[in-house]
């Protein structure tokens, strides 16, 4: 049989990929999931209890959520407005700005943190300029508000690139029909534009939230271990200077993955409900 002769070498071609993927993507996750319940020589929930009982870890979780939610919401609002603005700009400007957005979305991690130090650090160009006119007197890039700015900065290009195709799907005819039927610009967005965009906006918001929750490099390059976030705590527990506690790190990691899963589930629930609304 020719079919059978083709199948066996074909399967062999796929095996190496799955071996590597299993060993370096799946195995670490499984290992973390098992290790989180490892207490001494036995098993138990002691690490989770320790995390819940500790004000320090509760603060890390709270701050992770806080910065993720704030930066994602601000980011998505700016991204939606920017996409709107891009669709209305002329062809050449639009192409240029999209290419630029693409460029900035590649600018992340340590270089990004460094660029912000140059701009908004204690002696940053913009900090000095703003202080001269009496603004930003007690601003610090290395504080919560500084991190909020930098998070929002990297969320916007990502949001724009993910949302732009959805804006492309808005037909010019819909706007014209709406306007013929007497709808103003406000009515058009209220009853047509935003409902059509809503699933994409919700999906993009989920990705932004996940992006912010998992962020590590930028914060670490900026403040080291001095801002209390879940990713910072996890990394410090397995690669810090003292007291390595891989099991506790695993438990915290599992909570982080659980948080990401919850965000995705909530988004899908919201999306399903919005489909019901638009169906009727």
């Amino acid at each position: 049989m020719t079919a059978r002769r083709f199948i066996s070498p074909a399967i062999l071609c796929v095996v190496p990929f799955f071996v590597v993927f299993a060993a370096f993507q799946l195995a670490p996750l499984v290992f973390v999931a098992i290790n989180a319940f490892r207490v001494g020589d036995g098993w138990g929930l002691a690490h989770f209890q320790e995390i819940i009982a500790s004000a320090f870890y509760r603060q890390a979780m709270w701050r992770t959520l806080e910065i993720a939610i704030v930066s994602s919401l601000v980011g998505i609002v700016i991204a939606v407005l920017t996409c709107y603005s891009l669709t209305r700009l002329g062809g050449r400007w639009r192409r240029l700005l999209i290419a630029f957005t693409n460029m900035t979305s590649n600018f992340a991690g340590v270089p990004l943190a460094f660029a912000f130090i140059i701009l908004l650090g204690a002696n940053g160009a913009l900090t000095l300029a703003l202080q001269r006119i009496g603004l930003f007197e007690d601003f610090s890039l290395y504080s919560r508000s500084g991190l909020m700015i930098i998070y929002t900065w990297f969320q916007v290009p990502l949001g724009v690139l993910l949302l732009l195709p959805a804006f492309g799907a808005l037909r010019a005819e819909w706007r014209e029909s709406a306007s013929l039927l007497g709808a103003g610009r406000h009515d058009y967005w209220r009853y047509i534009g935003l409902p059509v965009l809503w699933p994409s906006i919700a999906g993009t918001l989920t990705i932004l939230l996940a992006n912010a929750v998992g962020t590590y490099a930028t914060v670490f390059a900026l403040v080291g271990n001095n801002y209390n976030l879940m990713t910072i705590r996890i990394a410090n527990l397995v690669a810090g200077d003292l007291f390595l506690q891989p099991e506790l790190a695993s438990a915290l990691s599992l909570l982080l993955v659980g948080l990401l899963a919850t965000i995705t589930l909530v988004q899908q629930r919201l999306l399903r409900r919005s489909h019901h609304v638009t169906d009727h």
Binding site: Q25, P28, L29, F31, V32, Y216, I234, V238, A261
Partner: peptide, 21 residues
Amino acid sequence: VLILAPFAVPPVVSSVGLLQL
């Protein structure tokens, strides 16, 4: 489904497992 894994599991989390394995 598999291509979502790198997004669902932040590098920090993967590192915890990789370091020990």
